[in-house]
Simulated assay, not measured.
Amino acid sequence: MSRDGFRAEEIDTSRPHPARIYDYLLGGKDNYDIDREAGDALAAAAPEVRVSVRANRAFLRRAVKYVVGEGVRQILDIGTGLPTSPNVHEAAAEVAPDVRVAYIDNDPIVSAHGNALLGGSGANTVVLADLRDPQSILSDPSVREVIDFGRPVALLLVAVVHFLAEADKPEQIVATLRDALPAGSFLVLSHATGDLAERSEAQAVYRQATASMNLRSRAEVLRFFDGFELVEPGLTQVPFWRPDGTPPEGSHEIGFYGGVART
C-alpha cells in the first residue's frame, strides 16, 4: 500500500515517521537522525511532549489490563509503533497468559522489529498495513489467523487516529472497524488535542513527516466512540484514566485524551 509517503515495500528515511519520532521521544534507539531532529523540534514547540508520550504509553498498559480483566482474549493493535517493553502482549499476559495480539503498523521497521521480538510466536503476529485501508486489515490472512471476529476483540487505536486527516474520513474508518467487532468488544483510543495549549508549531513539525498531525477537540474525539458505550471515567486526559498511582507532575498540561468503550 502507498499513499502520502507510506510505502509498505520500502523504508522511507527521507522524512520523519511518526512511529520513529515516538520511539525517540520515549528514549528508544530505533530511529534516524531525521526522526531525532523532528523529535527535538517537537519538544521545543511543545515542552510537555516527552511527559505526554510516557503518559500515553502508561494509559495503554492500564487499558490493556482493564479489557483483559473484563474477559477479552484477542487484541487488534493498529498503529502499534516500535516495540516498547512492556508491549501489549506483555501487559496482557500479566492478567491472562492466553491473550492473542495482532499488531498492525505501516512502517517496515516496526514490522521487522516486532517480528524479531515475537520470535515466531504463533499467538501473536505483526502485519504491515495502513489504517487508512481498514478493510485490508480486517481481511488480512495473518490477522485472521490470530483474531476470530466471532468472539470479543479489543481494538486499540492509541495515538494513531490523529495522523488521519479529515480527507481520510477518520470517523468512517473507525466505524468500519467498529462494525467488524462482535458484541462484548472494546475500543481503546487516545488522541492528541490542542484544547489545552496552542500547538500550531508542533503540528508544523509533522508537515515534513510521512503523516500530518491533526489535533482535535474533546468533542471531535468523542465522535470516534459513536456506537460504543464509554466506561468510567469516560474520555479524559490520559493520566487521569483509572490511574494506578499519583499522576506525574505536569499531567494537567498533557494534550492527549484517552478512553475505553465497549460494544
Score class of each variant (00 low, 15 high):
F6M: 12
E9F: 10
E9T: 15
I11L: 14
S14G: 15
R15E: 00
R20F: 03
Y24M: 03
G27E: 03
G39T: 09
D40L: 15
P47H: 10
P47F: 05
E48G: 03
V51E: 13
S52C: 07
V53R: 11
F59M: 10
K65N: 03
Y66H: 15
G69Q: 12
E70S: 14
V72R: 08
R73T: 13
Q74V: 04
I75S: 05
L76H: 08
L76A: 09
I78M: 05
T80K: 05
G81Y: 11
H89N: 08
H89Y: 02
A91G: 02
E94P: 05
V101P: 03
V101E: 04
D105I: 04
N106C: 02
N106F: 02
H113V: 07
N115T: 13
A116Y: 06
G119Y: 01
G119I: 11
A123C: 02
A123L: 14
N124G: 01
T125F: 06
T125Q: 04
V126Y: 15
V126N: 08
D130M: 08
L131T: 03
R132N: 06
R132T: 11
L138F: 01
S142L: 13
G150P: 05
L155Y: 03
L156P: 00
A159K: 13
V160Q: 11
V160E: 00
H162K: 10
A165K: 15
V174R: 09
R178P: 01
D179S: 14
S185F: 02
V188C: 03
L189V: 13
S190L: 07
H191G: 02
A204W: 02
A211E: 04
A211C: 05
N214M: 04
N214D: 10
A219G: 01
V221N: 05
G227K: 12
G227C: 07
E229Q: 11
P233H: 12
G234K: 09
T236L: 11
P239M: 05
P239C: 07
F240I: 06
W241S: 10
R242N: 11
P243T: 04
E249T: 14
I254Q: 09
G259K: 12
V260Q: 05
